[in-house]
C-alpha cells in the first residue's frame, strides 16, 4: 500500500547541507502495524512527515495506495493528507477553542461531506475511543490521556488509508500510555494500517514490524548495536 524507493531528504541551512534521509527503501502492506525506532536525529520525524505528505522528498519515489505522491503540488498534498492520512501527534494538537466534537469534525469539514454524515462519523469515532460522553468539552477540560484519545478519534474519523502516530505516548504517563497503545492495537486489529514513531521499546512491541533508523538509513537491530 505504501512503497518508497530511494527516498532522500536534504536540508540546506546557511550553506550547510544536512542529509536527513539516504536513499531509503520502505514498503508497508495494508493492515500492517509498523514501528519506526531510532535515536534522536536519525530521521524518524522526517520520514514520518514524508509519509504523511507534510513534506516532500528531495529524491526518490513514493506511492501511496498505488498513486505516485512524491511530486504533488501543495494543494494536492493537502487533499491527499486530508483523505488518506490520519495523524496522531505527540502533543495531541487539539485546537483549544474547539470542542471535542468540533476537533474530531475538523478534517471532515475540509471535504464536501454533508453535515449529517460528518456528525455520524464524529459520533462513531468518539464511540470507538470511548469519549462520546465528553463531546461538548473543551480540550483544556480533559486529561492528557483523554486528549490523546480525542486525537485518535480525529485521526480515524476521516477513514484514512494509514494512521501515522508520532510518539503518541510521549506526553503521557505510563498508565495513559498503555491505554493509548491498547487503542491503537484495537484499531489495527480492526484492519487499520498504523505507522508509529516511538523511542519506547515496550510500545514498539505492539507493532508487527519494527524498522530502525540511524543517520537517515534503515538498519537492523544488530547493526544499531554495533554502531553504538
Amino acid at each position: 500500500m505504501i512503497s518508497m524507493k530511494g527516498i532522500s531528504k536534504t536540508f540546506f541551512t546557511e550553506e550547510v547541507e544536512t542529509r536527513a534521509l539516504h536513499e531509503l527503501q520502505l514498503d508497508i502492506a495494508k493492515g500492517e502495524f509498523l514501528s519506526i525506532a531510532g535515536p534522536s536525529g536519525s530521521g524518524k520525524t522526517t520520514l514520518l512527515s514524508i509519509l504523511g505528505l507534510l513534506d516532500g522528498p528531495s529524491a526518490g519515489s513514493y506511492h501511496l495506495g498505488g498513486r505516485d505522491v512524491a511530486q504533488l503540488s501543495s494543494a494536492e498534498r493537502a487533499r491527499v493528507r486530508n483523505e488518506q492520512v490520519g495523524f496522531i501527534f505527540q502533543s495531541f494538537n487539539l485546537i483549544g477553542e474547539l470542542t471535542v466534537a468540533e476537533n474530531v469534525e475538523l478534517p471532515l469539514t475540509y471535504r464536501a461531506l454533508p453535515r449529517a454524515e460528518r456528525l455520524r462519523r464524529v459520533d462513531a469515532a468518539l464511540e470507538r475511543v470511548g469519549m462520546s460522553h465528553r463531546k461538548s468539552h473543551y480540550p483544556a477540560q480533559l486529561s492528557g490521556g483523554q486528549q490523546q484519545r480525542v486525537a485518535v478519534a480525529r485521526a480515524v474519523a476521516g477513514e484514512p488509508l494509514v494512521l501515522l502516530a508520532d510518539e503518541p505516548t510521549g506526553n503521557l504517563d505510563s498508565h495513559n500510555g498503555v491505554q493509548v497503545m491498547e487503542l491503537l492495537k484495537e484499531l489495527h486489529a480492526g484492519g487499520a494500517t498504523v505507522v508509529m514513531v516511538t523511542h519506547n521499546d515496550q510500545y514498539s512491541r505492539y507493532a508487527t514490524r519494527t524498522v530502525t533508523l540511524f543517520d537517515g538509513r534503515i538498519i537492523d537491530e544488530s547493526a544499531l548495536q554495533r554502531a553504538g
Binding site: 494543494a75 493537502a78 491527499v80 495523524f87 494538537n93 475538523l106 478534517p107 475540509y110
Partner: peptide, 16 residues
C-alpha cells in the same frame, strides 16, 4: 501559527 499548522497537517486547503 501552531493551530494553522495543525489544520494544514489535517489537510486544510490554503484557501481555507
Amino acid at each position: 501559527r501552531q493551530e494553522l499548522a495543525i489544520r494544514s497537517a489535517l489537510g486544510a486547503p490554503q484557501g481555507h
